[in-house]
Amino acid sequence: MARLNVNLTRMVLTNLKRRLNTARRGHKLLKDKRDELMKKFLEIVKENRKEREKVEKMLMDVHSRFIMARALMSDTHLEEALIYPKQKVTLKASSKNVMSVQVPVFEFETEGQGDRDIFPYGFANTSGELDEAIIALSKVTPHLLRLAELEKTAQLMADEIEKTRRRVNALEYVMIPNLEETIKYIVMKLDENERGNLTRLMKVKDMILEQAHGYKKKMTEES
């Protein structure tokens, strides 16, 4: 614990005291913020895990259906069926403020006539198993976006928590002790100076009295 390199003056002391006060108040606030962030973070992580499990299950389902469709159609037929997607998804990304963290918000809109009209191919030469794959995939999309939102939010919050935690720690273990130490040192130093001054004054007084009245002898005798 290092003492700050400051001038040992009363003005500096007042300043330091003020800084210590602010640091203490900031520490408390940051601590509260950290706790609140942790709470929010845990909520999001929980939701994230649930969403992730759901999406993973759905994607596995999509995958197995696509494999089946692939097994029933030649590469060229499959390529032809899927090359030009019919449904267009417009994604609007904005952000919102959670505990001073900018987290993303995704909104998406699908173009086309409703969610039934998503098949970009004709039905005469394609396998019906492809339909099931496409339907399953289109159902995953919103969840996938929500998952992306949650993942990013969790990541950003984790960063923020880390930052806040470091600040709290810096205040708690470095800044505040340093200030306290310095204040203590200055106070001690000032007190010491005071005492030195006092002694010097007394000594000077003695010397003046002796010069003027010859009290010295008496004093020594007395003492």
């Binding site: 039934r116 009209d117 098949f119 004709g122 039905f123 030469n125 019906g128």
Partner: peptide
């Protein structure tokens, strides 16, 4: 068989009526 495939899939997927007429 192509027609049957179209009819059954259109029904399964709930495609609009005019679609089936086109297909």
């Amino acid at each position: 068989t192509a027609n049957i495939r179209i009819i059954i899939r259109t029904e399964l997927l709930g495609q609009p009526e005019e679609f089936i007429k086109k297909a």
